Simulated assay, not measured.
Amino acid sequence: MPHQEARRLFPRGLTQPEGGFRFGADALLLASFAAPAGGRRVLDLGTGCGPAGLGLLLARGDADTTVLGLDRDPAMVAAAAANAGLLGLADRFTARYLDVRAIRAEADIRPESFDLALANPPYRDPASGRRAPSASRDAARFETEGGLAAFADAAASALGNGASLALVHLAERLGHVFACLTARKLEVKRLMPIAPRLGAPARQVLLLATKNGRPGLRLDPALALYEGSGPDTRLSAEALGFCPFLACNAGPRNAAP
């Protein structure tokens, strides 16, 4: 598939390991949320098959931003590298096999050398919710391998002073998120709630935290993902305006493919 056609179709056509964790809208929302943030050297923590880091490159459309994607699953790393090649971004997106907990031991990943970090970490406490049948899916959903604390540690180590971490997480765990970030001198500066529809409670949050930043939080209006009802339910115009990548699944839920 020519690169331009693959970019037009993104995220459709991305390689995902058979039986592995399947990325969702949260990774695409994270890419769009982080795209306007400053910084050209980007670290994608827990990159999976690359949707957030690759989406950020496509959303920015520049020639200067580079992304290093880290993941502890070799199959995901291989998929991310393949997807970068598919999109013609292999010169600016590098996928690497590395557990985020080991980032400080990597001599070639220098402390405070990144301008921006992305993180879509496992959301759930292992004591809550139904566990996934496969080890890879379970580790992607539940904090069995360090969780948010490990991602925050990695970001705090890799980011330069004043650099930013863009993160997506569950609204119900916002207290946990703030505690983890504040303890590592990552000051939350912007927060966007994500609700399933207008007037409904937020289920997820997007946030931007600055390393050694001063207190001062911007709370954005909630982004409602869906509008309509029943068979006419579709992604909202606001959601598509914020994240055009969602257009791959924009129509009515019962629409024919």
Rank of each mutant, 00 (worst) to 15 (best):
D108T: 14
D64K: 10
A171P: 05
P221G: 12
L148A: 10
P133E: 08
L219Y: 08
L181M: 11
R110N: 07
A78K: 12
F10I: 02
I194N: 08
A154P: 00
A179S: 15
G24R: 06
A63T: 10
D115S: 04
L225P: 01
R137L: 09
A102S: 14
Y97G: 10
R40W: 12
A256R: 15
D99A: 12
K185Q: 15
L28M: 08
A105C: 02
L217F: 09
A6E: 14
A256W: 14
V100G: 04
P252R: 15
R130V: 11
R12L: 15
D138F: 05
L29V: 05
G230F: 00
A81C: 06
L57A: 09
A209V: 02
R184G: 04
R110I: 11
A200S: 11
Y97D: 13
F23A: 08
A154M: 09
V67T: 06
P215T: 10
F178E: 14
N212W: 13
D71M: 00
A200L: 04
A152W: 01
T15L: 15
D44E: 10
A155T: 09
T144V: 14
R101F: 02
L207V: 05
P11Y: 04
R253P: 07
R101G: 05
F245W: 10
L186M: 15
A256G: 14
D73I: 01
E112Y: 00
S229H: 13
R12H: 13
D44T: 04
A132H: 12
D26L: 03
G230K: 01
A179N: 11
C243L: 01
R92Q: 09
L118C: 03
D220Y: 10
E187H: 11
R72G: 11
F23P: 00
V100P: 03
A59H: 03
G213C: 08
T210C: 13
G55S: 10
A27E: 02
G85S: 12
A37Q: 12
N83K: 05
P11W: 02
V100N: 04
L70H: 06
D125G: 05
L57T: 06
G216F: 06
A79G: 07
F33E: 01
L174G: 06
E227M: 03
D91P: 02
F10Y: 01
S136F: 09
L191Q: 12
A154L: 05
T144L: 14
L148Y: 06
T15K: 13
N161F: 11
G46N: 04
H169F: 14
V77Q: 06
D232N: 13
P11D: 10
L86F: 07
L29D: 01
D44K: 08
